[in-house]
Design a protein around this nucleic acid. Sequence first.
DNA 1: TTCCAGGGGTAGA
DNA 2: TCTACCCATGGA
Length: 298
Amino acid sequence: MIELPVPTPYDFRNSIYDHGWAVLAPCSVEGEPRILRRVERLHSGEVVLLSIEGDPTGVRVSPIADHPLTPAETAEVRAKVRWMLKLDEDFTPFYRRAQAEHPALWATLRSGRGRLLRSPTLWEDVVKTICTTNVGWKQTKGMVRRLVDLLGDPYPLDPSLHAFPTPEQVAAAGEEPLRRQVTLGYRSGYVLKLAEDIASGRLDLEALRTANLPADELYKALRAIKGVGDYAAGTLLMILGAYGRLAYDTELRSFVTRRYFDGVTPSDKEIAALYAHWGEWQYLAYWFDAMSEWEGRL
DNA sequence: TTCCAGGGGTAGA
DNA sequence: TCTACCCATGGA
Protein backbone atom coordinates (compact mmCIF):
# COMPACT_ATOMS: atom_id res chain seq x y z
CA MET A 1 0.00 0.00 0.00
CA ILE A 2 1.27 3.42 -0.99
CA GLU A 3 -0.13 6.37 0.94
CA LEU A 4 -0.31 9.78 -0.71
CA PRO A 5 -0.91 12.98 1.25
CA VAL A 6 -3.61 15.22 -0.25
CA PRO A 7 -4.28 18.95 -0.19
CA THR A 8 -7.04 20.44 1.94
CA PRO A 9 -9.87 20.40 1.06
CA TYR A 10 -9.86 17.34 -1.16
CA ASP A 11 -12.82 15.43 -2.58
CA PHE A 12 -11.57 12.13 -3.97
CA ARG A 13 -15.00 10.66 -4.62
CA ASN A 14 -16.13 13.45 -6.94
CA SER A 15 -12.72 14.37 -8.34
CA ILE A 16 -12.10 11.02 -10.00
CA TYR A 17 -15.48 11.27 -11.78
CA ASP A 18 -15.51 14.98 -12.64
CA HIS A 19 -13.70 14.19 -15.87
CA GLY A 20 -14.93 11.44 -18.18
CA TRP A 21 -11.40 10.06 -18.42
CA ALA A 22 -12.25 7.88 -15.39
CA VAL A 23 -14.19 5.49 -17.60
CA LEU A 24 -11.80 5.40 -20.55
CA ALA A 25 -9.57 2.31 -20.74
CA PRO A 26 -7.34 1.38 -19.07
CA CYS A 27 -9.14 3.17 -16.22
CA SER A 28 -12.42 2.21 -14.61
CA VAL A 29 -14.35 3.09 -11.50
CA GLU A 30 -15.87 0.45 -9.30
CA GLY A 31 -17.71 0.09 -6.02
CA GLU A 32 -18.88 2.42 -3.33
CA PRO A 33 -16.86 3.98 -1.85
CA ARG A 34 -15.46 4.45 -5.32
CA ILE A 35 -12.23 2.81 -6.33
CA LEU A 36 -10.33 3.98 -9.38
CA ARG A 37 -8.63 1.09 -11.14
CA ARG A 38 -5.98 1.33 -13.81
CA VAL A 39 -3.72 -1.11 -15.59
CA GLU A 40 -0.29 0.49 -15.80
CA ARG A 41 2.87 -0.42 -17.63
CA LEU A 42 5.94 0.59 -15.62
CA HIS A 43 9.31 1.65 -17.02
CA SER A 44 10.64 -1.76 -16.05
CA GLY A 45 8.17 -3.31 -18.48
CA GLU A 46 6.12 -4.83 -15.66
CA VAL A 47 2.36 -4.43 -15.99
CA VAL A 48 0.50 -3.88 -12.73
CA LEU A 49 -3.05 -3.17 -11.66
CA LEU A 50 -3.45 -0.05 -9.52
CA SER A 51 -6.36 0.08 -7.13
CA ILE A 52 -6.75 3.66 -5.92
CA GLU A 53 -8.94 4.63 -2.98
CA GLY A 54 -9.26 7.93 -1.21
CA ASP A 55 -11.12 10.26 1.09
CA PRO A 56 -10.62 13.83 2.34
CA THR A 57 -7.65 12.71 4.42
CA GLY A 58 -5.57 10.85 1.87
CA VAL A 59 -5.20 8.57 -1.12
CA ARG A 60 -4.13 4.94 -0.88
CA VAL A 61 -2.76 3.05 -3.88
CA SER A 62 -2.55 -0.73 -3.90
CA PRO A 63 -0.45 -2.12 -6.76
CA ILE A 64 -1.50 -5.68 -7.54
CA ALA A 65 1.27 -7.58 -9.30
CA ASP A 66 2.84 -11.00 -9.52
CA HIS A 67 5.85 -9.75 -7.57
CA PRO A 68 6.53 -7.15 -4.87
CA LEU A 69 7.31 -3.77 -6.40
CA THR A 70 10.90 -2.60 -6.28
CA PRO A 71 11.61 0.77 -4.62
CA ALA A 72 12.00 2.32 -8.08
CA GLU A 73 8.66 0.93 -9.22
CA THR A 74 6.99 2.16 -6.06
CA ALA A 75 8.39 5.64 -6.61
CA GLU A 76 7.16 5.55 -10.19
CA VAL A 77 3.64 4.57 -9.14
CA ARG A 78 3.62 7.29 -6.50
CA ALA A 79 4.65 9.97 -9.01
CA LYS A 80 2.21 8.77 -11.67
CA VAL A 81 -0.80 8.75 -9.38
CA ARG A 82 0.06 12.16 -7.93
CA TRP A 83 0.19 13.46 -11.50
CA MET A 84 -3.07 11.75 -12.52
CA LEU A 85 -4.95 13.18 -9.55
CA LYS A 86 -3.28 16.61 -9.85
CA LEU A 87 -2.43 16.51 -6.16
CA ASP A 88 0.31 19.11 -6.56
CA GLU A 89 -1.76 21.93 -8.06
CA ASP A 90 -2.77 24.88 -5.94
CA PHE A 91 -6.42 25.84 -6.27
CA THR A 92 -6.44 28.33 -3.42
CA PRO A 93 -6.82 31.45 -5.63
CA PHE A 94 -9.65 29.85 -7.57
CA TYR A 95 -11.50 28.75 -4.46
CA ARG A 96 -11.04 32.18 -2.92
CA ARG A 97 -12.58 33.87 -5.94
CA ALA A 98 -15.46 31.40 -6.18
CA GLN A 99 -16.22 31.84 -2.50
CA ALA A 100 -16.20 35.63 -2.75
CA GLU A 101 -17.89 36.11 -6.10
CA HIS A 102 -19.97 33.09 -7.01
CA PRO A 103 -21.80 31.26 -4.20
CA ALA A 104 -23.41 28.69 -6.51
CA LEU A 105 -20.05 27.69 -7.96
CA TRP A 106 -18.49 27.65 -4.52
CA ALA A 107 -21.20 25.31 -3.30
CA THR A 108 -20.09 22.84 -5.96
CA LEU A 109 -16.37 23.29 -5.37
CA ARG A 110 -16.05 23.70 -1.63
CA SER A 111 -15.60 20.01 -0.84
CA GLY A 112 -12.32 20.24 -2.75
CA ARG A 113 -13.10 19.66 -6.41
CA GLY A 114 -11.36 20.93 -9.54
CA ARG A 115 -8.61 18.33 -9.93
CA LEU A 116 -9.83 16.80 -13.20
CA LEU A 117 -8.36 13.36 -13.83
CA ARG A 118 -5.58 13.02 -16.38
CA SER A 119 -3.36 10.22 -17.67
CA PRO A 120 0.22 9.49 -16.57
CA THR A 121 1.56 10.57 -19.97
CA LEU A 122 0.67 13.45 -22.26
CA TRP A 123 0.92 10.96 -25.10
CA GLU A 124 -2.08 9.08 -23.75
CA ASP A 125 -4.03 12.28 -23.17
CA VAL A 126 -3.40 13.61 -26.68
CA VAL A 127 -4.57 10.32 -28.19
CA LYS A 128 -7.66 10.28 -26.00
CA THR A 129 -8.46 13.90 -26.81
CA ILE A 130 -8.16 13.21 -30.55
CA CYS A 131 -10.57 10.33 -29.96
CA THR A 132 -13.17 12.77 -28.56
CA THR A 133 -13.26 14.89 -31.72
CA ASN A 134 -16.24 14.74 -34.03
CA VAL A 135 -17.76 11.64 -32.41
CA GLY A 136 -20.11 10.86 -29.55
CA TRP A 137 -18.81 9.78 -26.15
CA LYS A 138 -19.86 6.17 -26.69
CA GLN A 139 -17.73 5.97 -29.81
CA THR A 140 -14.80 7.58 -27.99
CA LYS A 141 -14.98 4.91 -25.30
CA GLY A 142 -15.07 2.19 -27.95
CA MET A 143 -12.06 3.53 -29.86
CA VAL A 144 -9.94 3.84 -26.73
CA ARG A 145 -11.01 0.42 -25.47
CA ARG A 146 -10.09 -1.27 -28.74
CA LEU A 147 -6.76 0.58 -28.94
CA VAL A 148 -5.84 -0.59 -25.45
CA ASP A 149 -6.99 -4.18 -25.93
CA LEU A 150 -5.38 -4.58 -29.34
CA LEU A 151 -1.99 -2.96 -28.80
CA GLY A 152 -1.37 -2.58 -25.06
CA ASP A 153 0.61 -5.04 -22.96
CA PRO A 154 -1.57 -7.60 -21.15
CA TYR A 155 -1.76 -7.69 -17.35
CA PRO A 156 -0.21 -11.02 -16.35
CA LEU A 157 -2.70 -11.81 -13.59
CA ASP A 158 -5.64 -11.23 -15.96
CA PRO A 159 -4.58 -11.14 -19.61
CA SER A 160 -7.97 -9.81 -20.66
CA LEU A 161 -6.83 -6.46 -19.19
CA HIS A 162 -4.25 -4.30 -20.94
CA ALA A 163 -2.15 -1.22 -20.34
CA PHE A 164 -2.33 1.82 -22.60
CA PRO A 165 -0.02 1.15 -25.57
CA THR A 166 3.26 3.01 -25.80
CA PRO A 167 4.07 5.21 -28.81
CA GLU A 168 6.55 2.52 -29.87
CA GLN A 169 3.83 -0.13 -29.85
CA VAL A 170 1.45 2.02 -31.89
CA ALA A 171 4.18 3.02 -34.34
CA ALA A 172 5.19 -0.61 -34.81
CA ALA A 173 1.59 -1.64 -35.48
CA GLY A 174 1.20 0.80 -38.37
CA GLU A 175 -1.94 2.38 -39.75
CA GLU A 176 -3.97 -0.63 -40.87
CA PRO A 177 -4.88 -1.97 -37.40
CA LEU A 178 -5.72 1.56 -36.25
CA ARG A 179 -8.03 2.02 -39.20
CA ARG A 180 -9.59 -1.43 -39.54
CA GLN A 181 -9.67 -2.85 -36.01
CA VAL A 182 -9.57 0.16 -33.71
CA THR A 183 -11.78 2.03 -36.21
CA LEU A 184 -10.16 5.40 -35.59
CA GLY A 185 -11.27 6.41 -39.06
CA TYR A 186 -9.48 9.46 -40.42
CA ARG A 187 -7.86 9.91 -36.96
CA SER A 188 -5.61 6.91 -37.69
CA GLY A 189 -3.08 9.04 -39.52
CA TYR A 190 -2.94 11.60 -36.72
CA VAL A 191 -2.38 9.00 -34.01
CA LEU A 192 0.17 7.09 -36.08
CA LYS A 193 2.18 10.21 -36.91
CA LEU A 194 2.23 11.27 -33.26
CA ALA A 195 3.37 7.79 -32.23
CA GLU A 196 6.10 7.78 -34.86
CA ASP A 197 7.32 11.26 -33.97
CA ILE A 198 7.62 10.33 -30.30
CA ALA A 199 9.08 6.86 -30.89
CA SER A 200 11.71 8.23 -33.27
CA GLY A 201 12.75 10.95 -30.86
CA ARG A 202 11.69 13.76 -33.20
CA LEU A 203 9.17 14.95 -30.62
CA ASP A 204 9.67 15.04 -26.84
CA LEU A 205 6.01 15.40 -25.94
CA GLU A 206 6.43 14.56 -22.26
CA ALA A 207 8.80 17.50 -21.86
CA LEU A 208 5.74 19.74 -22.14
CA ARG A 209 4.45 18.36 -18.84
CA THR A 210 7.32 19.80 -16.85
CA ALA A 211 8.61 22.57 -19.09
CA ASN A 212 6.70 25.25 -17.20
CA LEU A 213 6.07 27.16 -20.43
CA PRO A 214 3.66 30.11 -20.62
CA ALA A 215 0.19 28.99 -21.67
CA ASP A 216 0.36 30.60 -25.11
CA GLU A 217 3.58 28.74 -25.90
CA LEU A 218 2.07 25.48 -24.68
CA TYR A 219 -0.91 26.20 -26.93
CA LYS A 220 1.35 26.66 -29.95
CA ALA A 221 3.25 23.47 -29.17
CA LEU A 222 0.00 21.50 -28.88
CA ARG A 223 -1.44 22.98 -32.07
CA ALA A 224 1.67 21.84 -33.93
CA ILE A 225 0.43 18.26 -33.46
CA LYS A 226 -1.62 17.13 -36.46
CA GLY A 227 -5.15 16.38 -35.34
CA VAL A 228 -5.01 18.88 -32.47
CA GLY A 229 -7.06 21.96 -33.24
CA ASP A 230 -8.40 24.72 -31.03
CA TYR A 231 -10.79 22.52 -29.04
CA ALA A 232 -8.23 19.78 -28.43
CA ALA A 233 -5.52 22.27 -27.46
CA GLY A 234 -7.88 23.89 -24.96
CA THR A 235 -8.66 20.51 -23.46
CA LEU A 236 -4.98 19.60 -23.26
CA LEU A 237 -4.11 22.92 -21.64
CA MET A 238 -6.62 22.01 -18.96
CA ILE A 239 -4.92 18.62 -18.66
CA LEU A 240 -1.62 20.44 -18.15
CA GLY A 241 -3.08 22.71 -15.50
CA ALA A 242 -3.55 25.85 -17.60
CA TYR A 243 -7.17 26.96 -17.31
CA GLY A 244 -7.11 30.37 -18.99
CA ARG A 245 -8.70 29.24 -22.25
CA LEU A 246 -12.03 27.59 -23.04
CA ALA A 247 -12.33 24.54 -25.29
CA TYR A 248 -15.12 25.34 -27.74
CA ASP A 249 -17.11 22.24 -28.58
CA THR A 250 -20.74 21.25 -28.99
CA GLU A 251 -21.00 20.51 -25.27
CA LEU A 252 -19.90 24.00 -24.24
CA ARG A 253 -22.10 25.60 -26.88
CA SER A 254 -25.21 23.66 -25.98
CA PHE A 255 -24.73 24.30 -22.25
CA VAL A 256 -24.37 28.07 -22.53
CA THR A 257 -27.11 28.27 -25.16
CA ARG A 258 -29.48 26.58 -22.74
CA ARG A 259 -28.28 28.27 -19.58
CA TYR A 260 -27.57 31.85 -20.67
CA PHE A 261 -29.01 32.53 -24.14
CA ASP A 262 -32.53 31.20 -23.85
CA GLY A 263 -32.04 28.64 -26.59
CA VAL A 264 -30.60 31.06 -29.14
CA THR A 265 -27.15 29.94 -30.30
CA PRO A 266 -24.54 32.57 -29.31
CA SER A 267 -21.34 33.44 -31.18
CA ASP A 268 -18.02 32.31 -29.76
CA LYS A 269 -17.35 35.91 -28.85
CA GLU A 270 -20.50 36.00 -26.75
CA ILE A 271 -19.51 32.74 -25.08
CA ALA A 272 -16.05 34.09 -24.32
CA ALA A 273 -17.58 37.13 -22.66
CA LEU A 274 -19.38 34.89 -20.16
CA TYR A 275 -16.25 33.51 -18.56
CA ALA A 276 -13.56 36.05 -19.48
CA HIS A 277 -13.63 37.64 -16.02
CA TRP A 278 -12.38 34.35 -14.54
CA GLY A 279 -9.05 34.95 -16.29
CA GLU A 280 -6.67 32.08 -15.68
CA TRP A 281 -9.50 29.98 -14.19
CA GLN A 282 -11.97 30.19 -17.11
CA TYR A 283 -11.94 26.55 -18.04
CA LEU A 284 -12.72 25.37 -14.52
CA ALA A 285 -15.32 28.08 -14.00
CA TYR A 286 -17.17 26.82 -17.07
CA TRP A 287 -16.63 23.16 -16.22
CA PHE A 288 -18.11 23.37 -12.76
CA ASP A 289 -20.79 25.79 -13.88
CA ALA A 290 -21.98 23.02 -16.21
CA MET A 291 -21.41 20.41 -13.51
CA SER A 292 -23.54 22.28 -11.00
CA GLU A 293 -26.43 22.44 -13.47
CA TRP A 294 -26.18 18.72 -14.01
CA GLU A 295 -26.15 18.03 -10.28
CA GLY A 296 -29.02 20.42 -9.71
CA ARG A 297 -31.21 18.04 -11.64
CA LEU A 298 -30.50 15.06 -9.44
C1' DT B 1 -31.82 8.24 -46.03
C1' DT B 2 -29.96 12.05 -43.74
C1' DC B 3 -27.89 14.24 -40.03
C1' DC B 4 -24.39 14.94 -36.75
C1' DA B 5 -21.51 13.78 -32.77
C1' DG B 6 -17.37 17.21 -26.68
C1' DG B 7 -13.48 18.94 -34.79
C1' DG B 8 -9.55 19.52 -37.76
C1' DG B 9 -6.80 20.01 -42.15
C1' DT B 10 -6.53 22.24 -46.37
C1' DA B 11 -7.24 25.27 -50.30
C1' DG B 12 -8.62 29.52 -51.84
C1' DA B 13 -10.13 34.15 -51.17
C1' DT C 1 -8.22 35.72 -40.89
C1' DC C 2 -12.37 33.58 -42.77
C1' DT C 3 -15.01 30.16 -45.43
C1' DA C 4 -16.24 25.94 -47.99
C1' DC C 5 -15.25 21.35 -48.33
C1' DC C 6 -13.70 17.00 -47.05
C1' DC C 7 -12.66 13.53 -43.73
C1' DA C 8 -14.44 7.70 -41.19
C1' DT C 9 -17.56 5.90 -38.13
C1' DG C 10 -21.91 4.81 -35.95
C1' DG C 11 -26.17 6.09 -33.61
C1' DA C 12 -30.59 8.50 -33.96
